[in-house]
Write a protein that binds this DNA or RNA. Structure first.
Lengths: 123, 123
DNA sequence: TGGATAGTTCAATAACTCATGAGTAGTTGA
DNA sequence: TCAACTACTCATGAGTTATTGAACTATCCA
């Protein structure tokens, strides 16, 4: 992941709908979810709007799509998200020990306080 | 770091100038750098433009400022960057093991390949 | 072939972001 | 107090992004 890709990725993530999309698709794993089901899961947003945001995420290489019969299945590109994390840590934060501290606490372990929080804003 | 804060942070990072600013300020550490010096370091960008981007980063709580005599010193808020990383890993990526793999390799260790790269896009 | 289903694309408009340059505010030292 | 210095704020205009609804494409099945 180079700087340009990272900029595109940050830009793609800087929208509530798209952040929701990513979070939903990460939960779905490699199987992914059809566009229609995504629309239902996210509370019936207008189809064209959803399509626009999905296209934006795909252009940023954060998700990928495949057609299965009448459906278009979207799934997250884990290597892209990993690459973005890596970019943020290495190139952007310079692997600063203070910043990195949050990564050493095995992120995701429920109840582990991270930077003054107690993991209350979990989905 | 909640979703709204993360959105603001992503939005703030989604601009080349501001990404450069963050990278510069991370390198400076807690001492920070005066606005004028930042302008010089980044190749004489117009002062008002710089001020605008610094204000955007500060509004996103990614940096902080303090006045020292005639200068305004900007420095990075490490806990905010850490919080953003944490949010991206936990809330956004759901601590997916595949995505997390990039964090286990002690990011920043030069020469350690991360997701098919060899760390060539370093500043 | 024609209707139904699943999604995307397009055009118009609204809303937001960014760059620029002029003007303004805080600080210092003579 | 005044000039110089440092930096911010504001107004403007250009460019970009987002929303909406209608039209379109692809697929399936009877």
């Amino acid at each position: 992941m180079d700087r340009e890709q990272a900029l595109t990725a940050f830009s793609a993530l800087a929208h509530a709908d798209r952040l929701d999309l990513i979070r939903l698709l990460v939960r779905q794993g490699p199987e992914g979810l059809a566009a229609g089901q995504i629309g239902v899961a996210l509370g019936g947003r207008m189809a064209s709007r959803l399509s626009f945001h999905l296209a934006t995420l795909e252009a940023a290489a954060l998700i990928t799509s495949r057609r299965v019969a009448r459906n278009v299945i979207y799934s997250v590109r884990t290597e892209a998200l990993g690459g973005l994390l890596s970019f943020l840590m290495r190139d952007c934060c310079g692997s600063d020990p203070q910043i990195m501290a949050c990564c050493d606490r095995h992120p995701g372990a429920e109840g582990v306080p991270v930077y003054g929080e107690a993991g209350t804003d979990k989905t």
